[in-house]
């Protein structure tokens, strides 16, 4: 057991407001909010595969602007452009969120000691956000890079990626990490800026969303695995009947 004493001293000589700390905080919340909302949409679009190949195909066509293309197959370059944008947002989010990481060993120890000594749910939730954030730091860029270099999306093409290219391994890790990180994050943003005072209600919503998103995400992943197992090589893009 160690004894640590905190002093109410300031790290900033002469006490001053820091416009950058305000900005960083706002940027973190705003990018987090954006990414969280994107994730909600992303997972739902993804899960349209549960309604069949046709449904997923249609969703992709709409999102890639199929109605504007002559072939009716849309522009995968849109996916690329959007992926680059998301990557930039993720980098920005990670950069400002790094402030929160226990940078020194002493801080990490303080956190562990605190969590061992004090029983507090929201702190534990934050800890999981921290851990998942750390995982995402590595996994999210891999996923996004894949989408930039290889933007083709479709029932068969995606299944090929998941099954034949073994991306399911990545997704199986990425899905829980991103869902937990994002839902706890959205919950925190809401209470942090006082968007709602009903914390227990919000907590229930967050819990429900985690379970719900994990369920549809996992089911979609499984269905891609099934689709992937049935594919013949070379893989032909899905054409609706």
């Amino acid at each position: 057991m160690t004894i640590k004493t905190l002093l109410p001293a300031s790290s900033i000589p002469g006490l001053a407001g820091h416009p950058w700390s305000a900005r960083a905080d706002k940027i973190q919340s705003a990018t987090g909010l954006l990414l969280g909302c994107f994730l909600l949409a992303h997972l739902h679009f993804e899960s349209s595969i549960l309604l069949g190949k046709e449904a997923f195909y249609q969703v992709v066509q709409i999102l890639e602007g199929g109605m504007f293309s002559e072939s009716g197959h849309g522009f995968p370059v849109l996916t690329q452009i959007f992926s680059v944008f998301i990557l930039l947002v993720v980098i920005l989010h990670a950069a400002v969120a790094l402030r929160r990481f226990p940078a020194q060993l002493g801080q990490w120890r303080a956190l562990r000691r605190h969590m061992n000594g004090i029983n507090h749910k929201d702190t534990h939730a934050w800890f999981w956000q921290l851990v998942t954030g750390f995982i995402l730091f590595f996994l999210a860029p891999v996923h996004i890079f894949t989408m930039i270099t290889n933007p083709e999306i479709g029932p068969n093409l995606s299944a090929e990626r998941v099954y034949l290219d073994n991306a399911w391994l990545l997704y199986a890790l990425l899905l829980p990490a991103v869902v937990i990180h994002a839902m706890i994050g959205l919950y925190r943003v809401a209470i942090k800026w006082g968007l709602t005072a009903n914390r227990s209600g919000l907590r229930k919503v967050a819990k429900f969303m985690i379970i719900y998103l994990l369920t549809i995400g996992m089911l979609s992943l499984v269905s891609y695995l099934f689709i992937g197992a049935d594919l013949t090589i070379p893989v032909e893009p899905y054409i609706p009947h």
Partner: peptide
């Protein structure tokens, strides 16, 4: 508000708080 900003408008103040709410809950 400027006076308060100079005291807690920084990383040691409101922008350092991570909203863990151990304060409120206990």
């Amino acid at each position: 508000v400027e006076d308060f900003y100079h005291v807690i408008g920084n990383q040691d103040g409101v922008f350092g708080c991570m909203t863990l709410l151990g304060c409120q809950d206990n």
